[in-house]
Nucleic acid binder design. Sequence first.
DNA 1: CGGGATCCCTGCTGATACTG
DNA 2: CAGTATCAGCAGGGATCCCG
Lengths: 129, 129
Amino acid sequence: MDLVDNPDLPYNVFAKACPSRGTLEHVTGRWGALTLGALSEGSLRFNELRRRVDGVSEKMLSQTLQALERDGLVHRDAQPTNPPRVDYELTPLGHEVAGRLLGLIHFVEGRMDEVLAARERYDTARGGR
Amino acid sequence: MDLVDNPDLPYNVFAKACPSRGTLEHVTGRWGALTLGALSEGSLRFNELRRRVDGVSEKMLSQTLQALERDGLVHRDAQPTNPPRVDYELTPLGHEVAGRLLGLIHFVEGRMDEVLAARERYDTARGGR
DNA sequence: CGGGATCCCTGCTGATACTG
DNA sequence: CAGTATCAGCAGGGATCCCG
C-alpha cells in the first residue's frame, strides 16, 4: 500500500514536527553526508577529516561532528595526552547509515554523465531565459 | 581497497569542485529528499506536493523542482489548459535515486528510538552546558 | 593538534502580492 | 491552479583569533 509512509511507525519525516526530520537533515546535510562517508572507511582524527572533506571549515566540521555524536552515529574518542589526540569513528548505527549514504553517493557519481547531459538539454531548451 | 573513492570514476563528491557534490546536495537537501520521496509513489501536482511536504514554501518547492528537473530526476508535464494543470513525476533515474533515499529515510525513521536515546545520554552527560 | 569564542556577511527562507 | 517577483530577517557558514 503506502510505500512512503509506514503507518506502523510513530515517526514520519514528511511531518514538519517529527524529530526524524532533524536527524535526516543531520545525516543528509551538506557536511553530514560527507563526514559520514569519510568515516565509513575507518576512524579519522579531526584534521584528517578536515582534509578529507574538502571545503569544510573548522567550525562546521566540529558542529557537524557534535550533531552526529549526539544522534549516536559517531563516537568520539579523546585521549588526554599532549598534544591532544581525538579520533572519530562510526558507531554500529552510524555504519548502517553511512552504508546507505555511500550507496547513494556512488550512484550519483556513477550517473553524473546523465545528469550533466540533462542539464545541458534543460539549459539550451530555455537557454535565452 | 578504497571503499569511498572509486578511482575508476571521474567524479568524486569529496572534492570541492566536483559537480557531483552539487547534485548530491540537490538530492539530499532539506526539500530535495522529501520531494523525491513524495514523488516516488507516483505523479503529483504542485499543490498536492506542497501539502505532502509539510512546511515547504511555494518558493522553495518551485526552486527545488526546477533543480531536480534540470538534473534530469523529475519530469514536468504542463498542460496548457485553463485552469493550468502541471504534473510532476520521477524519471527512471529519479526513481533509482528516490529508492535509495527512501531506504535511508525509512531506516532513520525505524531507528529514531535509538537516536533519541543517544541524545538523552549525550545531553545528560554534559547536561550543565 | 583539537577545538571554542567572535565577528560578520551572504544567501536561504518565509510572507506577501501579482499574473495568466 | 501554478507559479513568479519582491522584500525583509535571521541563521548558516566562513574567517580569524585564541586557549589547553
